[in-house]
Write a protein that binds this DNA or RNA. Structure first.
Lengths: 141, 141
DNA sequence: CCCAATAATAGGTCTTCACCCACTATTTCA
DNA sequence: TGAAATAGTGGGTGAAGACCTATTATTGGG
C-alpha cells in the first residue's frame, strides 16, 4: 500500500522530474551548509572554467538575471571566493575573478557533489552511471 | 562564449537537476493550461491505478501533506474529476474516487506528457529512451 | 558634444511550494 | 464513559526563485 502509481512511473518525464528533484535537493542541502545555493556554485564553476567574466557575461552564460548576478557575487565576495574589479578599459564593467579560496571551495563542493551522486546512483554500476551521464548530456545538448 | 561550465556538466547530479527541471517545467506548463498542477495528476493516477483512497492514504502514498491533499481534492472535485464520500464504516474518513471524467482527463494528460517527453528526448533513439527509462527506474528503486 | 545604449546596482513584486497549527468530528480503548 | 488518538479541514507562514523597475555611471555613435 505504499507504491507509486504505475501510470506515473511509466512516464520518463515523471522519472526525470523526480530524480532531478532528489538530486537538486541533496545538492542544495550541502550547499546550504556553506550558506550557498546553486547559482553560487555555477558562478564559481564558470569563473574557474572560463576565467574572469564581466557580470553581464556571467548573466548571459548561465541564464541568470543580471540583478541576481549582483547578489550572488555579493555573497561570493564576502567570504573571499571572488574578487570584483572595475574594468579600466570600460569603467561600466565589473570583472569578477575567482580567488584561490574560491577554487578551493569549488573543489570541495565538487567533491561533495560526487559523494551525493554516489549515494543517489548507488543502484547503478559504473558502466551504467556513465551510460546515464552520456544520455543526459545528449538531452541537454 | 555561451557554453556552460564543464565543471558542472561533468556532474551527473547537475545534469539530473537540469533535465529534471526542464521536464517538470514543460509538464507543469501543460497542466497549468487545465488549471492543474503536478499533484493533481499524481492523485488522479493513484486513484486510477489503485482504486479509491481515504485522503490519509493518498497523503501516505504520494508523500503530500494531508492538508494539501484536501486542497488538491477540492480542485479535482470542482470539475468533477473525483468524487468524495464519507466512509460509512468510519465516518472520520473521506473516500476519494476517480470519475469517468477524471479517467478521461488523466488519459489526456498522459498523452500530452508523452508528447512532451518526445520533444525532450528527441536527441535519443527509441532504444536509448528505454535505456534511460530503465536506469531512472532503478535509481528511484 | 549630446543622446541613446550599456553595465551594474538596489530594491521590490509575485509565485510556488512545503510545511505547520488550530479546530472539529469521530472512533478506540482503558 | 472519559481520555487519547485519528481524519479531515481551514488558514495560515516562510523560504526560494524568477522577474521587473528605477537609478547611476559610463561609453560610443551620430
Amino acid at each position: 500500500m505504499e507504491a507509486l502509481p504505475p501510470s506515473l512511473l511509466g512516464l520518463t518525464t515523471y522519472l526525470l522530474s523526480k530524480t532531478g528533484k532528489a538530486a537538486r535537493g541533496r545538492l542544495a542541502a550541502r550547499l546550504a551548509a556553506d550558506g550557498l545555493r546553486m547559482w553560487h556554485m555555477a558562478v564559481l564553476a564558470a569563473l574557474a572554467d572560463f576565467g574572469p567574466h564581466a557580470q553581464r557575461d556571467l548573466s548571459a552564460r548561465l541564464g541568470i538575471d543580471p540583478s541576481d548576478v549582483v547578489k550572488v557575487l555579493d555573497e561570493l565576495s564576502a567570504p573571499g571566493f571572488v574578487d570584483r574589479a572595475r574594468d579600466p578599459a570600460d569603467r561600466r564593467r565589473v570583472t569578477a575573478t575567482i580567488t584561490a579560496g574560491g577554487r578551493r571551495e569549488l573543489t570541495r563542493l565538487t567533491r561533495e557533489a560526487r559523494a551525493i551522486q554516489d549515494e543517489l546512483l548507488a543502484p547503478l554500476d559504473v558502466a551504467e552511471r556513465d551510460q546515464l551521464h552520456a544520455l543526459l548530456t545528449r538531452i541537454l545538448v
